[in-house]
Write a protein that binds this DNA or RNA. Structure first.
Length: 953
RNA sequence: GGGCGGUUAGCUCAGUUGGGAGAGCAUCUCGUUUACACCGAGAGGGUCGGGGGUUCGAGCCCCUCACCGCCCA
């Protein structure tokens, strides 16, 4: 005898080990089997399983298991990502905690060694956690983005791109993370709106020159005229003033037309060396914004950078790698003199020479950028060069208000590092860039022509939007943990790119070379994941068989980071025999974000993080998986609540007990059982239901509608198989008819097997346990054949059973409304039943009697006195309730029903009375409406009669 | 500012060729009959965000407004 409930804690590990040991996770070697391949989105090696991983991997596992049972050769390729910044951070933190030497004290080689040690000991824990969910990855093929094979792929790709001119090095303005002291890509920057200030300063005109400043309103009327000896500049970042190369105004801005071409003075720094910069015109300044005049700091602002490039304005770098004001190089006097020469028209020196100019005055050198800001504001204000305003006098002020500096409080967009959470500094540095614009072309085309399809399709729009506006990809990082860039330099700064140092030296003609210290963006290696994990650049059988991958399952937040880049690299490097680019995967399924039960994004700081492993501990992996899958509707976020998990745990128990019931009744599928040969209506019916359910599950999974597939299986098991079939089976199991009993035992066992199979992808543990529990089997469920049902649809059986269900439901409802205990046995009299109906009753008499709790079922021409009545189709079912019936209650009930029917009839008559409807609607719709009307009308007649009989009683 | 999505029962959400509004949970009533109280039976509950349009017919298509969320600048 089986236990009353399934014990996941006891069973899961045992079952998982059995799967793994049997080799079920490995793709089968059958050359006739269709290849099916998913590569896992490699979790960070530092990662811990969160609910998003749980969803992502549940869906991958559902598909993998489904395809495996369908007979495909399934490879679900697992592995981890070396996660440059994250991992380096973890180990650095560990060093600090142990009071060991810091990364820099330790030196690169030792530090990297140390990270590898950490990786061997504690990295990849998340893969262990994934096993607890039941994921059926082929662990024998586990890969790591920094392992030997994948590193080889990375080198090859970098070198090839360089040779093709798609990878280049240059001094560009990049996003600089001052905490990690590395460049990061645009995608790793989060722009957040914060409270900021806008300061207004006066840049005096050179030589005390003055001009008439005129402001006009919209109609051209003069509102302000003033002689000025300065130009007013608004800025949110005063510390960058030191690096200004010009002041720009819009060419149409009449206010400043008189002074364009003049020089003005940056109002900060030692007085004897105030720098003069030109006033230029450019389309960039918005005359409506601030004063309309913009300071141009090409080396510390992306917009200014473009303006500076267009106008040949020098780019003066002001900060060091930690975003402190530069303290290197010659004295400020010396540097300012050079800059002054440039401003007055001297030739622009080389990039390196400009970069060597440190325009930070000694007073500010070495200060943090925010300290420098405060000091600069104070100094300018003290000197009287802040724009002043006089606040309006308030009641009760004893003296007239004094002018104060004009400082606007306003929301500003500030860039933050997504990992460091510090303010990102645009910084002029030497970096490697991939020509993403070029690589994007084929990646765009492949989605346009459907070689790769997104599900849901609307994500393609997001993909296109980004791809069509893609910027060069900064791939170099100033970190130590990662793939070191395969570029070497000689003493003159010439670069040699090669897959090995020997090759590079050979290229240089035998010079002594130094390797580029930088490493590659982690996403550079992730971009190769769909083929590097299969063994590329070697020509392995796996590459031939499993590339392109079948489907990629991921969340929308890494479409840009990862999906787009896999598309670019895959198409560029993977070609078929004819040289045609091959997409990395045919389908991309984008799933939702998992939120908490209130719809909030989960985050540590909010404290609303739901740990999937805690849920697994409490409710079992099956319940967690099912909860995620059944909520994975396309285009909606998922709200996770323990209440729901509990509900699906209950569902597992329900299934378990259904199996237990089958066991108690000795249900088993006899050898050679043919489902198409059953004779009992109930058996024909449940088989027909099973067939349509399998079709619905197939359809759902084939279309990536996981929620529909899961819901169809759920409904079938609970609301059809358990609620009705097993109840119908009870009288047959206990009945006299041995043949009917045997057939029902066989059919029930057969259908239970189907239920286990279609639920297996969603709830692998409990179904596998039951598979073993319910019969002697040759194979595990994980590799069992997916049900292929055919020819079991049966309209007659379905009509008969749904009639039976209606009768039972009506009688139960009647009893409840008449306040009769559901268990109280009654007699039923069928009035006006046709021979067909009477035959139905005869065929199902024991079922009906038991389910509706009836003692006798008889037929009559007239309704017995004092009966409660209900109408099913054209038959009145009367329950004689002499002495029990509450006539008033019954009258009310019938009147209510009559009203409902009247409503329906009115609606249908109106519809059918509409000539346009009859003329335009499809024939079958009109016929259907007519049939309904006839049906309701007949029912109405019966109900009216019943009511009439009560009135006269 | 640009783009995307959402608004359906108290709550969370389904609802794909436009043809009688659904599920789970919650609530109320009743219940231990061959599995299951992690259960069973029954019931109540919705002007499908507002407005307009197309259509014989709109939760679904079009326009518009409002509010909410996300992404990008």
């Amino acid at each position: 005898m089986m236990e009353k409930t399934f014990n996941p804690a006891q069973a899961e590990t045992r079952i998982y080990d059995a799967w793994e040991q049997s080799g079920a996770f490995q793709p089968k070697d059958d050359p006739n089997a269709k290849p099916f391949c998913i590569v896992i989105p490699p979790p960070n090696v530092t990662g811990r399983l969160h609910i998003g991983h749980a969803l992502n991997n549940t869906l991958q596992d559902v598909l993998s298991r489904y395809k495996r049972m369908l007979g495909d050769s399934v490879l679900w390729q697992p592995g981890t990502d070396h996660a440059g910044i994250a991992t380096q951070m973890v180990v650095e933190r560990q060093l600090a905690a142990n009071q060991e030497p810091s990364r820099r004290d330790m030196g690169r080689e030792k530090f990297v060694e140390r990270v590898w040690e950490w990786k061997e000991e504690s990295g990849g824990m998340i893969l262990q956690q994934l096993r607890r969910l039941g994921t059926s990855c082929d662990w024998s093929r586990e890969r790591f983005t920094l392992d030997e094979g994948l590193s080889e792929a990375v080198l090859k790709v970098f070198v090839e791109l360089y040779k093709q001119g798609l990878m280049y090095r240059g001094k560009r303005l990049v996003n600089w993370d001052p905490k990690f002291e590395t460049a990061i890509s645009d995608l790793e920057v989060e722009n957040i709106e914060v409270d900021g200030h806008m300061w207004h300063f006066k840049y005096p005109l050179a030589g005390g020159k003055t001009y008439t400043y005129v402001e006009k309103d919209e109609d051209g009327n003069v509102t302000l005229t003033e002689e000025r000896d300065y130009i007013s500049i608004a800025t949110t970042r005063p510390e960058t003033m030191l690096g200004d190369g010009a002041v720009a105004v819009h060419p149409d801005d009449e206010r400043y037309a008189p002074i364009v071409g003049e020089l003005c003075e940056i109002p900060v720094g030692p007085k004897e060396h105030r720098r003069l910069i030109p006033i230029i015109t450019d389309e960039y300044p918005d005359p409506e914004f601030g004063s309309g005049a913009v300071k141009i700091t090409g080396a510390h602002d992306f917009n200014d950078y473009e303006v500076a490039k267009r106008n040949n304005i020098p780019l003066y770098r002001l900060m060091d790698t930690q975003a402190a004001m530069r303290a290197d190089g010659p004295s400020y006097d010396e540097c300012a003199t050079k800059a002054q020469a440039i401003a007055r028209g001297a030739d622009l020196p080389s990039e390196a020479e400009v970069d060597a100019i440190n325009l930070v005055p000694e007073d500010y050198r070495g200060l943090d950028r925010f300290e420098a800001r405060e000091k600069i504001i104070a100094d300018i204000t003290a000197e009287g060069l802040a724009v002043m305003v006089t606040p309006e006098a308030k009641d009760g002020d004893e003296e007239a208000p004094q002018p104060i500096p004009l400082v606007e409080n306003k929301k500003i967009q500030q860039p933050f590092g997504d990992r460091s959470n510090v303010v990102i500094e645009p910084m002029l540095t030497d970096q490697w860039f991939a020509n993403a614009g070029e690589l994007a072309k084929e990646a765009i085309a492949a989605v346009e022509d459907g070689r790769t399809t997104f599900h849901p399709k609307n994500w393609e729009k997001t993909y296109f939007e980004w791809m069509r506006n893609i910027q060069p990809w900064c791939v170099s990082r100033q970190l130590w943990w990662g793939h070191q860039i395969p570029a070497w330099y000689d003493d003159e700064g010439n670069v040699y790119v090669a897959e090995s140092e020997e090759e590079a030296i050979a290229q240089s003609g035998g010079k002594s070379l130094t390797r580029d210290p930088d490493v590659l963006d982690t996403w550079f290696s992730s971009a190769l994941w769909p083929f590097s994990t299969l063994g590329w650049p070697d020509k392995t059988p796996e590459v031939a068989k499993f590339y392109p991958n079948t489907v990629l399952i991921t969340a929308f937040d890494i479409i840009f980071f990862w999906v787009a880049r896999m598309m670019m690299q895959g198409l560029h490097f993977m070609k078929d025999e004819d040289g045609k680019p091959q997409v990395p995967f045919k389908d991309v399924y984008i799933h939702a974000l998992v939120r908490d039960e209130k719809g909030q994004k989960m985050s540590k700081s909010k404290g609303n993080v739901i740990d999937p492993l805690e849920l697994v501990d409490e409710y079992g992996a099956d319940a967690v998986r099912f909860t995620l899958a059944v909520q994975a509707g396309q285009g909606r976020d998922i709200r996770m609540s323990t209440q729901r998990v509990e509900g699906y745990r209950n569902f597992g128990t329900k299934l378990w007990n259904a199996a237990r019931f089958c066991e108690m009744n000795e249900c088993a599928v006899p050898a050679g059982f043919d489902p198409s040969s059953v004779t009992q209506t109930v058996n024909k019916w449940i088989l027909a239901e099973a067939q349509s359910t399998v079709a619905a599950v197939n359809k759902g999974l084939d279309e990536y509608r996981f929620n529909e597939a899961a819901a169809a299986a759920y409904r079938f098991v609970w609301n059809i198989f358990c609620d009705w079939h097993l109840e119908f089976a009870k009288p047959l199991f206990g009945g006299e008819d041995a043949a009917a009993k045997a057939e029902t035992q066989a059919t029930t066992a057969y259908v239970l097997d189907i239920a286990l199979k279609i639920l297996h992808p969603f709830m692998p543990f409990v179904t596998e346990a039951l598979w073993a529990e319910t019969a002697r089997r040759d194979t595990q469920l994980i590799v069992a054949d997916w049900p292929q049902l055919d020819g079991l649809a049966n309209a007659d059986a379905e009509a008969e059973m749904s009639w039976l269900i209606d009768v039972i439901t009506n009688i139960r409802s009647l009893k409840a409304e008449m306040n009769i205990a559901p268990g109280k046995p009654l007699n039923a009299v069928l009035v006006g039943a046709s021979q067909d109906i009477l035959d139905r009753v005869e065929r199902n008499r024991p079922l009906l009697a038991r389910m509706a709790r009836l003692e006798e079922i008889s037929a009559s021409d007239s309704v017995p006195p004092a009966s409660a009545q209900t109408v099913v189709g054209e038959t009145v079912i009367a329950l004689p309730l002499d002495g029990v019936i509450d006539l008033d209650a019954e009258r009310d009930r019938l009147a209510k029903e009559l009203k409902k029917l009247d409503g329906e009839i009115m609606r249908l008559e109106k519809k059918l009375g509409n000539a346009k409807f009859v003329a335009n609607a499809p024939e079958e719709v009109v016929a259907g409406e007519k049939a309904k009307l006839a049906d309701y009308t007949a029912q109405k007649t019966k109900v009216s009669e019943a009511l009439g009989r009560l009135e006269t009683a």
